[in-house]
Nucleic acid binder design. Structure first.
Lengths: 331, 331
DNA sequence: ACGCCAGTTTGCAACGTGGCATGCCACGTT
DNA sequence: AACGTGGCATGCCACGTTGCAAACTGGCGT
């Protein structure tokens, strides 16, 4: 059994309470006592029991990060940064993977981790706005990534519409005229794809170009395989595009691979822009032009909001994190 | 405040203990009682307090996964699988990121999460075998990935030496004669690189080729950037290799990019083999030949060992997970 | 009628910690 | 000499849960 306060107290010849005071850095402990107690702590290898502490003070020091997939590079990078930022604030991150499953998301939203964490950072995929509104769980929640019916919930995201518009405008500025949008999600409740599509259309409109349905390409999910398949279809169809705005870097990398499969030169014949600025895109051949969201910023802002909510009930806010267009070789 | 057992008990008109019995599926509860209690639970939205439960039973249902970096694709994929496998067993995974920092690893090894988790899956990077042997923390520990001085600790890994030998032999079998090994870590305590080097040398020896020092290429870390830089050096040096065995896929993807930068055709002029079978390698151009470790198997086996250790003290074992060579386009 | 048993329910205690209020002491002030 | 004050140490209790063992119930065999 691990040593407890009591053991340390006996060893040091003081009361349990005094040991507790030392452990918690309470002000009024005589230096000599403190030293003696500390020596006993070290000698016995005492470590506070987190369960007991949690039970007593009602806080766990844990934050849940709920994401569709850890092994999707964007989320992996976001998770890595979140863990780092949280660590600097004395918080530990618990990662929950939903696989984009609506049931799983619902569970987590309605308090599956309720008693275990002090806050939830939630990157929704399939969950409906109504579900969010119906939430009764008192644990602070911050949404990551865009969401439409901002149903009275904090959220942190970059301006997806503006970012998509910039990306598309960048392609148009280089003289491309048949710019496809790859990543439409017809049946998904996910707002991200919708907003990126909106930005794409805005850019076309601003350039005086009509939106052409056959250039708005749907996909199943947002992985390399989906980008690969969709790009093959696009290239094999009658009138291929001269540029493609992919809604994620993974899609773009799949598309890049598809271009290679068909012997289509990138960026000469088809330019590509991705979204997310994942590490892979820097080393692909050619390197991927992409929208780069400030992931550190997102993590910081989200944890700020959680802390604020934990301190006192605060009116929900939508917070916009910075982004920029990272121009590389595919455009 | 959340409702507690007591509130449910009052609502249902039974004792606290009976509610607890219902919650825990205790056998001897009359169907009628169970139903009534369940109704009260639902009505009040009761959820067990995990801190109290943990305090009482001494188990948390948490497992720590300690890895250098979440956003390194191999670890991301391993983490994703571990979370899934653990979830199926009713366990929650807590991810700790060490950034390969020896201090951080030491902390975690010596019980930083001691009171918070039931077990630790530890993928060491910088920590010395002596450190492992000196461990006194009673929490079950399983090492992931190879480690030399198996200092009385369970570990689960593929056979790195054999895998590296196969990869190198595969390159030699296609007629390559100047096969470089990219990923040596001169100053690292990390055993993985050492073992992969050993396998590489074995394969050379079996083919009757001498080990040439200038073909054994050191790197700082194992990322794309390191592979990129090392490959540039290799290509720019006097006698470039006709094949490169990279100790990780990330290194290989960086190397692939470097080959493109120098206009060197892959696999015509230089063949490449990686290690880890990360998703990116399937969609790179050309697609990466790689050693594919059974990541699901590793996660399963590691959690098996943790469970075994938790049940009773067991003599440490080294468990070998399967792997295979996945031949694609770079070789 | 009695005891026994399987089935069902219950009260008590304890897990290890921190909040609270209070006690104690030495010292300086009135 | 009595008093107040600030510094320090302590005991008691509650946080919400479950293990333990006892207690109650009704049916059944003797």
């Amino acid at each position: 059994m691990n040593p407890k306060l009591r053991d340390v107290a006996e060893h040091a010849g003081v009361s349990v309470r005094t040991v507790s005071n030392v452990v918690n850095g309470f002000r009024y402990v005589a230096p000599a006592t403190r030293q003696r107690v500390q020596a006993s702590i070290d000698a016995l290898g005492y470590r506070p029991n987190l369960a007991a502490r949690t039970l007593r003070q009602g806080r766990t020091g844990l934050v849940a990060l709920v994401i569709p997939e850890i092994d999707s590079p964007y989320f992996a990078e976001l998770a890595a940064r979140t863990v780092r930022v949280a660590g600097a604030r004395g918080l530990t991150v618990l990662i929950d993977q939903t696989d984009g499953d609506a049931e799983r998301e619902k569970e987590l939203l309605h308090g599956k981790r309720s008693q275990l964490v002090d806050g939830v950072l939630f990157s929704p995929w399939a969950v409906a706005p109504a579900e969010l509104a119906a939430r009764t769980d008192p644990v602070p929640l911050v949404l990551l990534g865009e969401h439409d019916g901002t149903a009275g919930v904090d959220h942190v995201a970059i301006d997806n519409v503006a970012a998509a518009r910039e990306a598309t405008a960048h392609l148009l500025a280089s003289g491309r005229r048949r710019v496809a949008a790859l990543g439409i999600q017809p049946r998904s409740l996910n707002a991200t794809a919708r907003q990126r599509l909106a930005g794409y259309r805005q850019a076309l409109a601003e350039a005086g170009l009509p939106a052409e349905p056959e250039l708005e390409v749907p996909v199943g999910r947002l992985h390399r395989a989906d980008g690969h398949a969709a790009m093959l279809r696009l290239l094999d169809a009658g009138a291929p595009p001269d540029a493609v705005f992919c809604f994620t870097d993974e899609l773009a990398l799949g598309a890049l691979r598809a271009a290679a499969d068909r012997g289509v030169a990138v960026p000469e014949s088809v330019a590509l822009v991705g979204f997310d600025d994942i590490e892979d895109g820097r080393y692909s051949v050619p390197a991927l032009t992409t929208v780069s969201p400030d992931k550190d910023g997102i993590a910081e802002l989200a944890l700020d909001r959680l802390a604020r909510q934990a301190a006192e009930p605060a009116p929900p806010r939508s917070i916009v994190a910075p982004h920029h267009l990272e121009v590389r070789e595919t455009s």
